[in-house]
């Protein structure tokens, strides 16, 4: 966390310096939620990188999980007269007033990573992933990998009732719907954590004839998959070959498992939400091209054939 904050500070300093040199460069305010997860930290790092690569002067504000801090930050950006504002909204409601202020000041706002409940003329566009689609990509991979073979899937769900858990389950079920040979035999929550993923998998192995009846594991995030892989190894099973492992997020550690042949596939929740946002913004400011209200990021599938070692190296310093 400290490292991220330090990096943010350094980047802000550099950006300010660059800003004084070329007056024509864009100034963009970015109100980030905080750094509650590795993915969030990576999103911050990538946004700063993207800004630097494009010569954008990024003003970064960490809201520490509080909407009031985000609103304060946005008002600050408006007062400074930035060219655009990026917001990763911590909650869905309560944005109308501050977005109107931005609109009156003629500053376009782009939402990152999450949608909000507000009239969509108050913001330029929202860049998010489609969680149902992520589940579907994972399911499609499994359908392709098993063919006509009978396949009993163990599902490790995210936190019960959370939207990624609901949507990633839905997408996966849609993908396997036309394939009666693939069934979700057991489904339990692993709370998105390694410890719970491991504990749940240990029980599944015992309940399914020592794991001999299990064909695949589908985990709603990579951390649970990493825990499940440990449980399988300790039970003398071979994850990756005896039991297929597919999960979502594409955090660095899953690529190490893939490199060792213990995981088969992961669907990326890209931390690069800022790239498409900057693209849309540049086009809009240049000739007024209005982007669609929703820009869906790519849910890229990674398998062992995508050089997991190289992907790991490229991701490990992003702050995950």
């Amino acid at each position: 966390m400290f490292r991220t904050v330090a990096a943010a500070g350094a980047a802000a300093l550099l950006a300010t310096f660059a800003g004084t040199v070329s007056a024509s460069a864009l100034t963009v305010g970015f109100s980030q939620i905080g750094s509650e997860s590795g993915w969030r930290a990576a999103e911050t790092t990538v946004t700063q990188q993207q800004a630097k690569d494009r010569g954008v002067d990024l003003k970064f504000a960490d809201a520490q999980q509080k909407q009031e801090n985000q609103i304060k930050a946005v008002r600050g950006f408006i007062a400074q007269g930035v060219d655009a504002i990026l917001i990763a909204p911590v909650v869905a409601t309560g944005w109308d007033a501050v977005l109107k202020e931005a609109q009156e000041a003629d500053i376009p706002v782009i939402l990152l990573d999450r949608q909000i409940d507000a009239p969509d003329d108050l913001y330029l566009t929202a860049v998010t992933s489609d969680q149902v689609h992520e589940g579907k990509v994972a399911g499609d991979w499994l359908v392709g990998a098993v063919g006509d073979q009978e396949c009993k899937v163990m599902e490790l769900q995210g936190t019960t009732g959370s939207s990624p858990a609901i949507n990633r389950k839905k997408g996966f079920e849609e993908a396997i719907a036309g394939h009666p040979n693939i069934t979700i035999a057991r489904s339990q929550t692993g709370d998105f954590t390694r410890t719970k993923g491991k504990e749940v998998m240990e029980s599944f192995i015992k309940a399914e004839n020592g794991g001999k009846d299990i064909c695949a594991v589908y985990a709603h995030n990579d951390d649970m998959a990493v825990g499940a892989i440990q449980a399988m190894k300790e039970a003398g099973l071979k994850p990756g070959s005896d039991i297929k492992v597919v999960s979502i997020d594409a955090v660095p550690d899953i690529f190490l498992a893939m490199e060792n042949g213990e995981a088969n596939a992961t669907v990326e929740l890209t931390p690069n939400m800022a790239g498409p946002a900057f693209d849309a913004l540049e086009a809009y400011l240049k000739d007024g091209t209005v982007p669609p209200k929703w820009i869906q990021t790519e849910s890229k599938l990674y398998t062992a054939s995508d050089d997991p070692k190289a992907v790991y190296e490229s991701k490990k310093d992003l702050g995950y």
Binding site: Q157, T160, G161, R186, S187, Q188, T189, E199, V200, S203, F204, K206, A207
Partner: peptide
């Protein structure tokens, strides 16, 4: 109880 629920096969909403 925790392990029993995991092995029972009931949906996690009931845990």
């Amino acid at each position: 109880l925790n392990t029993g629920i995991l092995i029972s096969g009931w949906p996690p909403e009931f845990n």
